[in-house]
Design a protein around this nucleic acid. Sequence first.
DNA 1: AATCGAAGTAGAATATTATTCTTTTATTCA
DNA 2: TGAATAAAAGAATAATATTCTACTTCGATT
Lengths: 157, 157
Amino acid sequence: MKEIKKLDEVDIKILQLLRENARITVKEMSTQLNLSTTPVFERIKKLEQAGIIDHYTAVINHELLGQKFTAFAHISFKDHSKELINEFEDRILALPEVLECHYVTGAADFIIKIRLRDMEEYKEFVTDKLFGIPNIARIESFLSLDVKRGRNKKLNI
Amino acid sequence: MKEIKKLDEVDIKILQLLRENARITVKEMSTQLNLSTTPVFERIKKLEQAGIIDHYTAVINHELLGQKFTAFAHISFKDHSKELINEFEDRILALPEVLECHYVTGAADFIIKIRLRDMEEYKEFVTDKLFGIPNIARIESFLSLDVKRGRNKKLNI
DNA sequence: AATCGAAGTAGAATATTATTCTTTTATTCA
DNA sequence: TGAATAAAAGAATAATATTCTACTTCGATT
């Protein structure tokens, strides 16, 4: 990781293009940016080395694969010792259903986001896996019936 | 979009590799899979055409760019007419801070996930933007102090 | 068991792209 | 203004993607 310099409009445009399609060619980008391939190539490498581009990934359509179910679970603890919190995080993150685990302020200690096949799997997940973890006082569930993503093409920097 | 056939282990391995690094070369994949480039190439194209690979994207490190703040807001409505809900979604999704908007069951109507620079921006977001939308009865905020992603490399299919 | 066909694969040939290198053009700043 | 620095162009090379043809493998059918 190198130090980070301020991004100019070209850098931001590059990030936007790569966010829209990580497999876009340098040639195509340079056409859109009215530059030759060299500066585009070098800027991409800099953004990668600076860690601004963390990685490239394929976004899988999980619905097509039968996982139609996203849910949020709010979890509150009985005891708030650091050890128990760490143990909780460890065990939660090891579960394959768990996508994200947020430590939050507000009317819960953690919000976890999970993905599953159906209601049945959710029931099993909560009763067997979540309540199998000690120290959980309360779980509140929110099943997502429909998600929409923010539609700003522009990077909000 | 073509019809979807059952995925075999090779397909799943391909999806895993592309999820880890969307810019991996077909050659590198074929080495790891003990295949020649042709079958790997063709399988990728099929997965794309079937829509199982939705798209490829660059994951940006927003923290490095100064956006250190992720939050969830739970939103409850006064009135639940379809028109008002659609209007809400439209306006919410147009806001650059909004990443996801989930229509949920449970003790809220919507959960939105947002990203901002700091607390100040969050205050402005809630008072100016959210409460500028009519029909909102209640907003409950959860500020994420720390996120961790599920650490399963394996695709959970 | 022999044959057919489909699906999958290998390997070579070609087209395209990434990457490096050298030279030229802008920018910055003393 | 004029050096010093950074950015960009353009050409050359290395690597990869993509296409094409031909060869297996396997299951179904007779």
